[in-house]
Simulated scan of single mutants.
Amino acid sequence: MNGALIIDGLHKRYGELIALQDMTFQVSPGEIFGFVGSNGAGKSTTMRIILGVLAADAGSVRLGDHPIDLQTRRRIGYMPEERGLYPKMKVGEQLVFLARLHGMSSAAARESVSRWTNRLGVEQRVNDDVGDLSLGNQQRVQLAAALIHDPRVLVLDEPFSGLDPVAVDVMSDVLKEKAAEGIPVIFSSHQLDLVQRLCDRVGIVARGQMRALGRVDDLRARDGVMLEIAGPSTRTRWADGIAGVVQADYDTEADLTTLRLDPAVADDQAILTAALRVGPVHRFATTTPSLTELFREVVAA
């Protein structure tokens, strides 16, 4: 069983700029964790500290009970946001070289290169220079470099950037398979629909601090359930004062009423009955904010 990846109280300052402030979370074995935030929020800084590329001013990173040291880093698969491949080196030679750096034998490295280039659809390009590949194929090779040594932790910075839909599906499947093997997987992305679909939990970062952390569905529902009712005249403000209605918004042009509910108190059947007293109901449906809407709210706050 793999240990959890534990990020505990990281602080990082560049002069007057506070890049990280008490950054704390963990990624459990078998979990896909989405790490999201605006540019400059602190995501890449956190990932570089995990890898030891940067040193934190305070705090620690552990894999289970063990601090991240050189030996532990050999077990991490890292994909930087800026592609870190040698453009004048052939794909296959480069992947073998990287696998050997992680301690694999030559035979095992070549077998792994064959397996991952086939899986990621770049097996026909192993004898091409990396710089001659399209940006999408370079991204596939970069992912192969992160996977080539059979890592026990995956830390991926914007892995879906520049990929076509087919490649996105392939990469999504790889991440789910690695999580199913009990590997902690953390990735950052600005494609919040993918994060919402793939991740077990998500952390939203703003100005170097973790502003929201939890399961995707729990975060989306944290401000209560939203209920949309179309039909009854909104001019009557018919939902005001109903038990469990925290907020009522009325769109008078569309006769659409949107209610924010306290699920512990609200009775949807009572709300429906109240709506029908005003007029026919054409739509009555609960909704929760998307992760994109939640992200906007958290970052704005």
Rank of each mutant, 00 (worst) to 15 (best):
D69Y: 05
R283Q: 15
G136H: 00
H11V: 10
I183M: 06
E82L: 07
A239I: 09
F97R: 05
D223Y: 10
Q269Y: 10
K88M: 11
G40W: 13
A4N: 01
V174K: 01
S106T: 13
L20H: 12
A179I: 09
A239K: 02
L70F: 08
V168G: 00
S28T: 05
M210T: 07
L272M: 13
L256E: 10
L54Q: 11
Q94G: 03
I76P: 01
W116M: 03
D173C: 10
D169M: 13
N118R: 15
D173G: 13
V174P: 00
G131D: 02
K12G: 02
P29A: 01
L272T: 10
M226I: 15
D268A: 13
M79I: 11
Q269C: 12
N39H: 09
T257N: 08
G34R: 05
R207W: 04
D255W: 11
H66A: 12
G279C: 12
R13D: 09
V245A: 01
A108V: 06
E293Y: 06
R74T: 10
V153M: 02
L85W: 02
R197G: 05
T236H: 14
A300E: 13
V299S: 02
D249K: 13
Q269I: 12
A285F: 12
F160D: 00
D218E: 15
R211P: 09
M226Y: 14
P67N: 08
R100H: 05
L154A: 01
Q124Y: 06
G3L: 04
V225P: 04
A55E: 15
R235Y: 09
C199I: 03
P263H: 05
T236F: 13
R296N: 15
R197F: 08
G42C: 07
M47G: 06
I32M: 03
H282S: 14
A264R: 15
G9N: 15
G103L: 04
L135V: 06
G30R: 01
G37W: 07
I186V: 14
R152V: 09
G214I: 09
V166H: 14
A56K: 04
F295W: 04
D22I: 08
R222N: 11
R235Q: 12
F97T: 02
D223N: 12
L194A: 06
I204Q: 01
V281Q: 08
I76N: 04
M1H: 10
V202D: 03
G92S: 04
E111P: 00
I50H: 04
R110C: 00
A179T: 10
Q26P: 00
G203E: 03
P80S: 08
A206S: 15
R119L: 12
G84C: 02
I7R: 00
V27Q: 00
I183A: 00
G9M: 05
M89R: 11
Q139T: 03
G34T: 06
S189G: 06
M79Q: 10
G37A: 08
V216G: 04
N39L: 07
T24M: 03
A109L: 00
M89G: 04
L54A: 07
D57P: 07
W116H: 02
I242G: 05
D8C: 01
A230W: 15
V299Q: 08
G224S: 03
L5G: 00
T24Y: 04
L85Y: 02
Q209F: 07
P151K: 10
R73V: 03
E297Y: 11
R152L: 14
S134F: 09
I18G: 02
L154N: 03
T288Q: 15
L10F: 00
I204F: 05
R13V: 12
Q191V: 13
A275G: 11
